[in-house]
């Protein structure tokens, strides 16, 4: 059995249906109307021990709701969740030792305590012995440079400091399963890099990680498996590299030539590729499928037409692919 299992998981929120403005608010006091919004719609998901999974989707797709269902914060409308065979809703305390949760938008540190004190309180809540605690803190110090943050009061932390402290708080009890929900939101690039580096060490230690993000930079180089959710439904669950291979097969070769090459001549030399005009008449863009043509082939086809001064190849990122999936341009078949 997988470590994390969701079967037909569904969450429907009931929202008051109010007309806009004061009138609508008053009217709602007397005539109560509600609309149902399905945030998570019959989701099946199973994650094995040691797996790193990216859970992506546009804003409001149901990512955070799924994480809250998987951690027992919300009660599912239907369907069920099992963590290591236990229900987080029914065996809350047992499951809490097995999971670590980080919500990037929300801190779990006490706002009126220094970080060191918040972490010490959590140590006692989880019943971690002092030796283990010191060892883990030393590691956080090493990878997250936590030392400078420890004496700062919760409410005085900068966003980057807060996120590092919150990561330490979420992982203090060394949970086998970790949910990271938007863990790099609002961070500057340097902190982002450090935090991403930290995720990789966590993953390499064998922790099962589910990473929710709409910053696709977080997932590239981090996980093999990609799950895409949109409007509460999982629309793709499969290998990240396979997605790239299947849908990021397009390459663009940008060339700069010494003399002007007419577009028609280039098209005649390269049937099967799309030729576009570049920023000057001396620039050309050649769009081709990397499975039917190679960059070398393109260069040698263009060489007889003019001397090539410079060229480079654009490779689309997974970001472009997922963006095209969101917009409905691409339909993925798992």
């Amino acid at each position: 059995m997988a470590l994390v299992e969701a079967r037909q998981l569904t969450k429907v929120f009931r929202r008051p249906d109010k007309d806009p403005g004061m009138r609508g608010a008053v009217k709602h006091l007397f005539v109560r109307r509600f609309v149902d919004k399905t945030a998570v719609d019959h989701v099946d998901l199973s994650i094995d021990a040691g797996e790193a999974v990216a859970y992506v989707g546009p804003n409001g797709a149901g990512k955070s709701t799924t994480v809250k269902l998987l951690s027992g914060i919300l009660q599912p409308t239907s369907g069920e969740v099992r963590i290591d065979g236990l229900s987080p809703q029914k065996d809350r305390i047992a499951v809490s030792h097995r999971i670590g949760v980080l919500f990037g938008q929300r801190t779990q540190l006490w706002w009126d305590l220094p970080v060191s004190e918040s972490l010490a309180v959590l140590r006692d809540v989880y019943g971690i012995d002092h030796g283990t605690y010191r060892r883990r803190m030393a590691r956080f110090e090493e990878v997250l440079e936590l030392g400078e943050v420890l004496p700062v009061l919760g409410r005085k932390l900068s966003l980057g400091q807060r996120m590092r402290a919150d990561l330490a708080a979420a992982l203090l009890h060394a949970p086998p399963v970790v949910y990271l929900d938007e863990p790099t939101i609002g961070l500057d690039l340097a902190v982002k890099d450090r935090v991403r580096q930290f995720f990789r060490t966590v993953r390499d230690e064998g922790t099962t990680v589910m990473l929710t993000s709409h910053d696709l930079g977080d997932i590239e180089g981090f996980c093999r498996r990609l799950v895409i959710i949109d409007e509460g439904r999982i629309i793709f669950d499969g290998d990240l590299e396979a997605v790239k291979d299947a849908f990021a097969r397009e390459r663009i070769l940008n060339v700069q030539t010494e003399t002007v090459v007419p577009l028609e001549a280039a098209r005649a030399a390269l049937p099967g590729a799309a030729i576009e005009a570049g920023e000057t008449p001396l620039h050309l863009g050649v769009r081709f499928d990397r499975f039917t043509m190679t960059a070398g082939h393109v260069v040698s086809a263009l060489a007889p037409l003019a001397n090539l001064v410079d060229f480079n190849v654009d490779e689309p990122s997974i970001e472009d692919v997922i963006r095209r999936v969101y917009s409905g341009e691409l339909v993925l078949q798992p």
Binding site: K68, S71, G72, I73, R92, I93, S96, H97, I99, G100, V101, F103, R106, Q108, L122, V125, Y126, G127
Partner: peptide, 12 residues
Amino acid sequence: QGDLDYMMVRPY
């Protein structure tokens, strides 16, 4: 404010 989230994942 939704501040119970973290409390619900702690063993207390």
